[in-house]
Nucleic acid binder design. Structure first.
Lengths: 205, 205
DNA sequence: TCATTTCTGTAGTGATAGCTAGACAAACAG
DNA sequence: CTGTTTGTCTAGCTATCACTACAGAAATGA
């Protein structure tokens, strides 16, 4: 067995930038969703022919998987940062909701959240299930954070972690939905502010 | 011009119950969405051939329009009733949210809300826009109710009607979404309860 | 009975979906 | 240069999409 440690590739080099093409695909999936975006749409927007697309990404499904990973890395990392970047969970969740309102109305980018709306009602259940898992994992992660905040004395002992996590995520999903329906950033920020009025506060006994 | 007031139809009578077929189509669109439901799916579930379907309903698009109207009449009328059936808007909205949690998890019926999720990311923008209008009309209606509650002295004068209406609908859409993602009715009811903690209360000056 | 009207089943329309075979192009190693 | 490897392009694959032409079936009125 011989190993190839050479830097330069062997055959004809790729004529397009794979990352640029991936981002073009991301915008399309983000705006139109998985099912409504055809290979024709993709190859046109990515500036490459269908065979090049399949050589580089394997299939529509695999391309979408890469798009989702890149989307989460580039446009959804603010979620983790909002929680871990604040000294208390209360401030973290407030920031999470505020930044959600901003994230789903970024000028020059598609409205809404790809994870929330790109794979509702697809004919391929696996794709739908993949994003569903991402959403439910987010709820579970927030539930864990709430548990820690209760144990740490920040939140009341009678707080239900699962319910509170579901409430926060329901608000975020509502914000993402309404962004798609045309609501302004200011309106969505107001939703975020209002939602925080339901956040539990520990009253000193 | 001669008018036909006869009760019995002229030609060969329809071999199926139009309302039953419409309801079968509704279940399919509700569960799978507009785009992911094919004419083949429909004609199978409705128990009729494609030509009969087109003779009775015109087109997939027109069938969907009828389905939406029937859905709103049968499964979304609780919204208006919740608001007008309570003495105060505060109690009306609480009931609206609670019953939303129940409505999107009815046993034996598809999860979620057809208006919320049946036409996201369709290739035909008109269908998508039709449901979008239904959603935004709901927000506007609630905004009007909030305005009246402020004028009537129930809610604080500094309440922003548009923002509050958006907040309530965002919560409802989040509840509908999470129903599709598998959340239990109890969890969704807890979201509704939590959401009401953000509802404004008039404190006597 | 017969002509008319309307519905239903077979069988197919053109368009588009995701995807790929195969010929050629462009890089490499020797 | 030649041979190998890999990317791109043309063209076309099969399957399914929404939809319908057409012939037969089942009701009516006369």
């Amino acid at each position: 067995m011989r190993y190839d440690f050479s830097v330069t590739a062997r055959g004809r080099p790729r004529q397009f930038d794979r990352d640029v093409a991936l981002r073009a695909a991301m915008m399309l999936f983000w705006r139109q969703g998985y099912e409504a975006t055809s290979i024709n749409d993709l190859s046109t927007a990515m500036g490459i022919g269908a065979p090049s697309l399949y050589a580089a990404f394997g299939s529509k499904r695999k391309l979408f998987d890469e798009v989702v990973a890149e989307y989460v890395r580039r446009y959804n990392s603010f979620m983790v940062e909002a929680i871990v970047g604040e000294p208390t969970l209360t401030r973290g969740v407030r920031r999470l909701l505020r930044e959600s309102a901003v994230a789903v109305t970024r000028p020059g980018l598609p409205r809404g959240c790809l994870v929330v709306s790109a794979a509702t009602n697809t004919t391929s259940p696996e794709v739908e299930q993949a994003l569903r898992k991402l959403r439910n994992d987010g709820i579970k992660a927030l539930e864990g954070a709430v548990r820690m905040a209760i144990a740490g004395g920040e939140l009341p002992d009678d707080t239900n972690p699962r319910q509170l996590a579901h409430y926060v995520f329901a608000t975020m999903q509502g914000i993402a939905q309404q962004a798609r329906d045309g609501a302004s950033r200011a309106t969505l920020e107001a939703i975020a502010e209002l939602a925080m009025r339901a956040w539990p506060v520990k009253t000193p006994a």
